[in-house]
Amino acid sequence: MKPPPFAYRRPSSVQEALTLAAQAGEDAKFIAGGQSLMPLLALRMSRPSHLIDINRLPGLDELRQSGAGLRVGALVRHATLERDARLTGPWRALREAAALIGHHPIRLRGTFGGSAAHADPSAELPVVAVAMDATFVVRSTAGEREIPASDFFAGPLMTVLDPAELLVEARFPAPPPRTRSAFEEFGPRAGDFAFASTAVTLSTRDDGTVQQARIALGGVDAVPVRAYEAEQALEGEPLTDATVREAAGRAAAGCAPSGDAHASATYRRQLIATLVERALSRLKEER
């Protein structure tokens, strides 16, 4: 369980990192927190020719909130999200999700960008990004492009990123007024990758009916998916036990998980019903 050989370099600017990535070719990889890449190296499931260490790139570790929304730099550590007291109301799911990633030492090192780029189908942050309609900003020597979170994930451990593209930040658009969010997941032990998870954001009107609902599910497909039918069941309706149950039921019925030795497809679907119901019930109670 020793990493295979590779070349290593530690650029000090984003521009330099991009140039190096362009030069080093297809098999080069960035390393951020290393909390996903290092285990893959130890198992020799990844064999990069070059590792470009982005930990010292300036400016990528900022978390900025403004009227336009929230910007999360690629190097923002999970623990930073977990501890940021500003992440309440519409942003709370982000904080709740970050707090559920692995364990404390993992969260101190692991980064938002790494989690997104690693694209584990069970990872928390991608689910939140999809629920919150985030956009990923990526850069290469060829320039910058913006990719909606819903288009970013291409499959298990796959994204639409080119090898030489660096994810620099995620932009979360400002939500409608009276938006709240919640995150729920279930894994067999504390800190385990979740069998299933959900991020929910809800905006309500003055009369208490739901104006906009976004429900994203994790662990039930190759990438995070939206539960559109569940969202529709809520929009225009008040939050009641009945609408909550209806939405949870539709979320479960509408997803098509595949099973494995650790959690069957049926079980994952049952979990979705439970988790969506729990997230919505929480939002209902807190109103």
Binding site: F186, P188, F195, H262, A263, S264, T266, Y267, Q270, L271
Partner: peptide
């Protein structure tokens, strides 16, 4: 008695 098995029994 993993969570999945117990959930199945509950059902």
């Amino acid at each position: 008695l993993t969570p999945g098995r117990v959930r199945e029994l509950l059902r």
